[in-house]
C-alpha cells in the first residue's frame, strides 16, 4: 500500500533460503482457493479428527450442527458443544453467547466449571423461539463482538436461516458457530458439519471414580471432508480432546473407536 514496489521486490528475495523462497513464490502464483485456504479454523487437536475435516479443523464462521443420537443424549450434545466452545475460548479472548429457544436446557454455572469453561465468559439469551435464536445469532455474527456462538434450537435448522447465518459469517475473524438441534429433524441446510453425539461411560481415575466425560461422536456429514466415528474424551484441565486408549479393563473405550 504505502510501500514502494521496487523496494518490496528488492527485499523479499534476499531473505530466507531458496526452498522457502520458492514456496513463497508458488503461493503467490497459485490460484485462489475461493478463500478456503485463508479461512480460520479451530483445530481439534487430534490428528485423527482433524484429518477428516477440511482445512484441518472446524471452520470458524459457517454453522456446525450438533445433534444428540437419541432424545436422552441432549445433555451429552450440549456438553460436546460447550467443550468445543471451551476449546476455542482457551485460544482466543472474548466471550461466548448461548441463545436458547424456550424449553432448551441452559447450562448450570458450576457444571460449566467442570467442563473447563469460565461462566463469566458466557452470555445467555433466552429467546422466544427458533426464529429469535436465528435473529440473535445473525446480529451477533454481524457485530463480530463474540468469540463463539451457540444456538439451542427446538425444531432444527432449516435451509433459509442456515444460508443467512452462512452469509452473515462471511468476512474476517468470524466466531465459532454451533447449533444444537433435537435428534430428529435432519433437514438439508447450510451447515458445514453435522455431528451426532451419544453419551458414553466416563473414564475412571485410579480410584475407580468417574473422571472425564466421554462421548461417542459421529461426524455424519462434512462438506469437503469425510465422516467418521470416534469415542472422545475431554480433559477439562488441559483443554484437550483425547481418543481414549483401548486399555484392558476399560470396557468403555475398547472396541469401536475407528478413526
Amino acid at each position: 500500500m504505502g510501500l514502494d514496489p521496487a523496494d518490496e521486490s528488492a527485499r523479499t528475495p534476499a531473505r530466507g533460503e531458496p526452498r522457502a523462497r520458492l514456496a513463497a513464490l508458488r503461493a503467490q502464483l497459485a490460484p485462489p482457493e475461493e478463500g478456503r485456504a485463508s479461512r480460520p479454523i479451530l483445530p481439534l487437536g487430534l490428528s485423527a479428527l482433524d484429518a477428516h475435516l477440511p482445512g484441518g479443523g472446524l471452520a470458524l464462521g459457517p454453522p456446525h450442527e450438533i445433534a444428540p443420537a437419541g432424545p436422552a443424549d441432549g445433555v451429552a450434545a450440549l456438553g460436546f458443544a460447550l467443550t468445543l466452545c471451551a476449546l476455542h475460548l482457551s485460544q482466543v479472548s472474548g466471550e461466548a453467547l448461548i441463545a436458547a429457544a424456550p424449553g432448551e436446557p441452559l447450562p448450570y454455572g458450576h457444571g460449566l466449571l467442570g467442563l473447563g469453561l469460565d461462566p463469566g465468559r458466557l452470555l445467555l439469551l433466552e429467546a422466544g423461539g427458533d426464529g429469535e435464536v436465528f435473529r440473535a445469532l445473525e446480529a451477533a455474527l454481524h457485530a463480530r463482538a463474540l468469540a463463539a456462538l451457540i444456538g439451542l434450537l427446538r425444531d432444527g435448522l432449516p435451509l433459509k436461516p442456515g444460508r443467512r447465518l452462512q452469509l452473515a459469517a462471511e468476512g474476517p475473524s468470524p466466531p465459532l458457530l454451533l447449533l444444537l438441534r433435537p435428534a430428529e429433524a435432519g433437514m438439508p441446510n447450510g451447515a458445514a458439519t453435522r455431528w451426532r453425539i451419544a453419551a458414553a461411560p466416563a473414564s475412571r481415575d485410579r480410584f475407580g471414580t468417574l473422571d472425564r466425560p466421554r462421548w461417542r461422536a459421529r461426524l455424519e456429514r462434512c462438506r469437503n471432508g469425510r465422516g467418521g466415528d470416534w469415542l472422545l474424551e475431554w480433559d477439562h484441565a488441559a483443554h484437550r480432546l483425547h481418543l481414549p486408549e483401548p486399555l484392558a479393563g476399560d470396557a468403555a473405550a475398547s472396541g469401536r473407536s475407528r478413526a
Partner: peptide, 13 residues
C-alpha cells in the same frame, strides 16, 4: 440491539 430488536436482555450467570 438484541434488547431493542427482540425485547430480550442478555444474561450472565
Amino acid at each position: 440491539a438484541l434488547a431493542q430488536r427482540l425485547g430480550r436482555a442478555l444474561l450472565r450467570l
